[in-house]
Every structure is written in structure tokens, then in C-alpha cells.
Nucleic acid binder design. Structure first.
Lengths: 359, 359
DNA sequence: CTGAAAGCGCTTACAG
DNA sequence: CTGAAAGCGCTTACAG
């Protein structure tokens, strides 16, 4: 609005502060960084001068010299969706908690959407925008593995959100997907369900879904129940895909009395598809999801699901990365999950209730 | 993991590329920045060399010299909430769309949570972390105004999300809150409602809510209906606050047949409080919200609300800021809103339907 | 505890 | 179209 004024005001540097405080520029730098060798008296004078001139350290210069940026990068992977307007609510929630955790640690967060297809591996640490990288997203981790190894070879500090498995190429934080999958299926079996469909891509390309599926299978086996492959349908984490998968399942003509969806979005899509066919949830088919996104408690019927503690997850991700940056040892970590039972899966109890009274 | 290898590998600089390509370092810089004075032949040699050595420009150095960072900062204001785990879904959605818009413009996004209390004005542009700033959040804009003016005086590039009003201290992008408020109330009146409570802080501290309230009042006046101040209850944008406000409204003992909540979260809290008192929505009290957060279509009954196009908003915010950075003229802009009618407000029609048939 | 000096890796007038 | 040179604003050995 006032380019002249702006242009005429030259930037205030550490030299200006040095002059005002009557010390050398080097001392200004030390004082402001909290170097313990600076005397209290000098530090106070420098700080007063900095405040008086409204001075802030130039990050670019400080980074250039100091090698660190005070910034963490979040590479956010999401395949372009048909309705590419909305981010998957689970990741949005993670994003929020990561942002807050960064603030607590005194880091800024540089966010970058990445389409899975793109060549992202060179972008960040190498161009020194960030001290470390957090990778977040479902998606095909096999494609990533080679890139992760390249990054690791370069000494890039890196943590991943995902399935915690042996021989991971980088520090990985994730929830206990196996136990989560088992818990859901045990719960459905306890409800009296016997033919549980699983909606979700259970291949090694989606290790989180795969772990959930493995937990599901294990629960069946433990109870001595057969595994029917016709009950598994691939799906990605979206309502649209959940709807499609449910239609495919119905088209197969196999009998089922429950759906375990690998994510809440899939489950919500499934409920929609079932309703359209006049199939009542949970009376005819019990449904459970995974993630406990905010929507899960609001859909009708409210969705049984597995809660992943996104707050905790964000904190652990940031904490781990900061420790990596400080060259402290960091191990992958599996966070506990929590089964949240809501109306969508109360098959048996509903049957019970229907006999006893009219709701 | 392998500190020796990492340490021994010195950073590849533009001098290395220059040597390999057989040109000067200055030419490398020009070629890589797309300077048109560089010949095609030279450019290709430089690019080949850069690719061969896996070189990327050092952002810190480039920023120090070049004055621009290629980064936009998003200052995200949210007062610490009781359940400070979750970000307001409306802003989360904005955050997603801003992130994507930045990516499209080739900018990175630096996100920083700000508690309203903190002294944020010096942080960003001045320390050269970002070329411009986006301010996002509800909250008390009066407190901001003086800070905004300080920033503007320094020549900081700045856009705000908020109420678009005359004499704004900075370029502001927002939805048409006045028309939104008017539309909701007109709709409720069309349903036959006559005593419409407004839940939301309608003071000048929250200009967006205030505009919605003004639209509400205007709709009443146009129809020649009286304004009863006992029907307005302050509330902040949270379920908790909506619940409280509804309880306060009920405690006042004034009659009302509709609630217009200044945000969806307030509305959802209100529906909860009404249900607890055995008051049926929409049969006894029609309810409408504002924002069209994803939850709005999933609550029971589905919530009538005003949609703010967050995709568009994110694009316009980023676009405006980028133009400010390029010293192009930019005006504040009011985006259109859209009334979304769902079940929660279908007071009259429900009464109708009840007579005709059993649903 | 403090200062003088080098240098981080670029960009951009200035010459030619 | 290209090169030699200055300098962006810091941090950090090296001396004292």
C-alpha cells in the first residue's frame, strides 16, 4: 500500500543491535541464541536493544549458517479422489494434532500435499527447508520403500505413520492394527454374527488394512470358524469405494450377517448401500468401521469402530522426529487401540430388545 | 544410522554443477531459475549436470539472497478449547483447501497454531520464513486490528479470512454472512416459525456472527415481525457452548419454535440439549446451523445450514495473497453462500406429513 | 566472557 | 549470452 515507506526501511540486522547495545555482532548472536558463555548483564543489554528495535533473527541467514531450520515437514500423501475437495477426516485430525505437537516443541510445520505418483523424495530435507520429515497417508507403501531407503541413505531424518512391522525402512509410528482387527471381529462374533464380510484392500500394498484383516482372520480361527474368501472385497478408504464394495458383495450373492470395514469412510459407504437395498443396520447386518472419525458417532446408526488416538499419535510422531534430529536413538512404536461399541454392531442385543419391547 | 557416511558426504553446491557443466556458477544459478538470457544449449547442460549429481538448490541460501521464500504462512487462531484435541471442523476443512491451493500455486505452506493471547505479529514475515501470511480463525478481531495495522505498516503481505466489512485493515476474504443469516431466517419463517432464537455472540467482537445476526434481524423486520432480545443467547463455536446456550435459553422461560445457531457446532450442541429435555427437533423446535461441516449431514435429524464453499475460499485466499506478493492490486472479496435445507428445519412440512401418513 | 574474521550457498548488478 | 565479484545476515571456530 505504501511501497516507498516499505522500501526505504532497510532491514534491521544484528549489527544494529550490536551498535545499540555496545557489543560486537557476534555477541548479539550468542546472546540471542542463549549461549551460556554470555554474561547476564550483556545478555540483558542485547535483549533490550533487540526489543527496542523490534528485531528478529533472519531465519534464512541463520539456517544457512546454522544448518537447522526449526521446521518439520509433513508430506501428506493422498491420492486425488473423485471428490477431491475433502481430505480424509482421519488424516485431517492427525494434521491438527501434528500441528499442535510441533507448536509445543517449538517447531513450525511445513505442509506439503503429495500426490502418490510424484517424485517427492528429493524435495525437502535436501533443499534444507526442514530438519526432518513426517510421512503421513495410506497408500501403497511398496512404492515408497525404495524412496525411503534413498532418503535414509542421505541421512534424512524421517518418521512414518503406518503399520509397524519388522524391517521397516524408517522409524514408524502406528496403531496396533492387528489387535484392532481382532477386537472388532471378536466383538461381532460375540454379537452372534457368523458370516463377517471384510471390506478393504488386504494386500501388502496397504499394510494397515492388511494387519486389520490378519487380526480379523485370527479371531475367526481362534473360534474355529472357517474363512470364506468370498467375504473379502477390496476397497480404498472412501465412502464411494465402500458403497461400491458393498454392491459388489451383494452381487456375489454370498450370505453375510456383518460387515467389518477397514475404515469408517468405507463403513459409512457400506451403510448407505445397505440402506438403499432396504437392508437394516444393525438388525439384518451389523457394521463396524475403523478410525473413529468424528462422523462415526453421528451417522445413523452410530458406528462401532476402533479409535486411533490421533492426539497421541501426533505427539509421538513429532517427539520421535525431534529425537532423531538430535541424534538420539528412536524405535518404532505401536500405539494401543480402543474398540468403541456403538449401535451399528449391536446385532444380538437389538434382536433381544425387539422381542422384549417396541423401541 | 550411518553418521560416518553422512558426515563425509559434503553438500553438492552450484559450484559442483558449474564444474561438471563447464560453465560458471552464476550461469548455473541462472539456468536453474529459468533466466531467459541463458541459451537453450547451456541450460540443458546445466540441467543434465544437476540431475546427474542429484542437486537441489539450497533454499536457505537462495532465500537469503533472493528475498523470497516460496512459502506462505497460515496463522491459525483458535482459542484453547476444553477438549483441545479437535480443531473446529470448518477450519480443518479450510486448512485442507488452503494446503491444496498452495500446492497448485507452487508454494509451500507453513502452518502455525496461534493462541489468541500470544504476541504473534512479529513472528513470520519479519523473520523471513514466509512471503506472506494468511490469518484464519474466528475470534476477537478487535484485538487483532491493532496488530494487523502494525503488520501492514511494515509492508507484510497479508490476507484474512473473516467478515468482509468496510474499512478493513487488510484484504479480507469471507462469505456473505449477512445474506446467509437472512436466508436462514426467511426459510424458518417460511416454515411457519415465528419465535426464532439466535445462538451466537452477536457483538462486534465476532463480526461474522454479528453479520449473521444482522441478516436474521433484517429478515424479521422485512416481514414486520418483532425482535425479542430475550431470544438471543451468546455462544462460541463449540458443541459445548451450544448446549450451554440452549440450557440458558430454556431457563429464561421464553417461548421459541426455532433455533438459528451461528455455527453448526452450536446447532449440534443445541439439538443435544433439546433432546435431553425431550423436545423434538424439528417437530417442536426447528433448528438451523451455519458452515455445513461434514457432520451436519450426518446428525439426526440432518442439519439445515448455510454452506460456505471452503474449496473456493482456500483458492481465493491463496490467489489473493500471491497477487499481493507480486504487488498486484487485490480487493477484499465476499463469496456467495448457499442455504442447505435438511430435515432439522422442516417444521411445517413435518406437521403436514404427520397428518397425511405415518413415516 | 568477548571480538575479529571466515564462510554458509546462493542471486544479481556490472562488465564484456 | 556469460563470467568475476560482491554480499544477503547470520554462526562459530579461533584468539585472547
Amino acid at each position: 500500500m505504501d511501497p516507498v515507506r516499505v522500501r526505504s526501511k532497510k532491514r534491521i540486522t544484528s549489527f544494529d543491535i550490536a551498535e545499540l547495545a555496545g557489543v560486537s555482532q557476534a555477541t548479539v548472536s550468542r546472546a540471542l541464541r542463549g549461549d551460556p558463555s554470555v554474561s547476564g548483564e550483556t545478555r540483558r543489554r542485547v535483549e533490550a536493544a533487540a526489543t527496542a528495535l523490534n528485531y528478529t533473527v533472519d531465519k534464512s541467514a541463520s539456517n544457512l549458517r546454522g544448518r537447522l531450520t526449526g521446521t518439520l515437514a509433513l508430506l501428506f500423501f493422498e491420492d486425488p479422489t473423485p471428490d477431491d475437495s475433502r481430505i480424509n477426516p482421519f488424516f485431517l485430525s492427525m494434521l491438527g494434532s501434528i500441528t499442535r505437537a510441533c507448536a509445543r516443541h517449538g517447531y513450525d510445520l511445513l505442509i506439503s500435499f503429495q500426490e502418490l505418483a510424484r517424485d517427492w523424495h528429493a524435495d525437502f530435507a535436501e533443499s534444507k527447508k526442514a530438519d526432518g520429515i513426517i510421512l503421513l497417508g495410506y497408500g501403497d507403501y511398496l512404492t515408497h520403500t525404495s524412496r525411503l531407503e534413498k532418503l535414509r541413505a542421505r541421512g534424512t531424518k524421517l518418521v512414518c505413520w503406518g503399520a509397524v512391522l519388522p524391517e521397516q525402512p524408517c522409524v514408524t509410528i502406528g496403531c496396533d492394527n492387528f489387535s484392532g482387527g481382532r477386537s472388532v471381529t471378536e466383538h461381532l462374533l460375540d454379537q452372534g454374527c457368523r458370516r463377517i464380510a471384510f471390506l478393504g484392500d488386504a494386500s501388502q500394498h496397504f499394510p494397515e488394512f492388511q494387519e486389520r484383516y490378519r487380526g480379523h482372520i485370527q479371531a475367526l480361527r481362534t473360534r474355529g470358524l472357517p474363512v470364506d474368501e468370498a467375504l473379502q472385497v477390496d476397497a480404498e478408504s472412501s465412502q464411494h469405494s465402500g458403497r461400491r464394495a458393498t454392491e459388489a458383495l451383494l452381487a456375489r450373492g454370498v450370505a453375510f450377517d456383518a460387515i467389518f470395514a477397514a475404515s469408517d469412510l468405507i463403513a459409512i459407504g457400506a451403510i448407505g448401500a445397505l440402506s438403499e437395498q432396504g437392508i437394516d443396520v444393525p438388525f439384518e447386518v451389523a457394521v463396524a468401521g475403523y478410525d473413529d472419525i468424528p462422523m462415526a458417532s453421528f451417522v445413523t446408526p452410530a458406528l462401532t469402530t476402533v479409535q486411533q488416538d490421533t492426539q497421541r499419535a501426533g505427539e509421538v510422531l513429532v517427539d520421535s522426529l525431534v529425537r532423531l534430529i538430535h541424534n538420539e536413538p528412536v524405535a518404532s512404536k505401536m500405539l494401543p487401540m480402543k474398540l468403541i461399541v456403538r449401535r451399528s454392531s449391536l446385532w444380538q442385543e437389538i434382536v433381544h430388545a425387539e422381542c422384549a419391547r417396541e423401541d
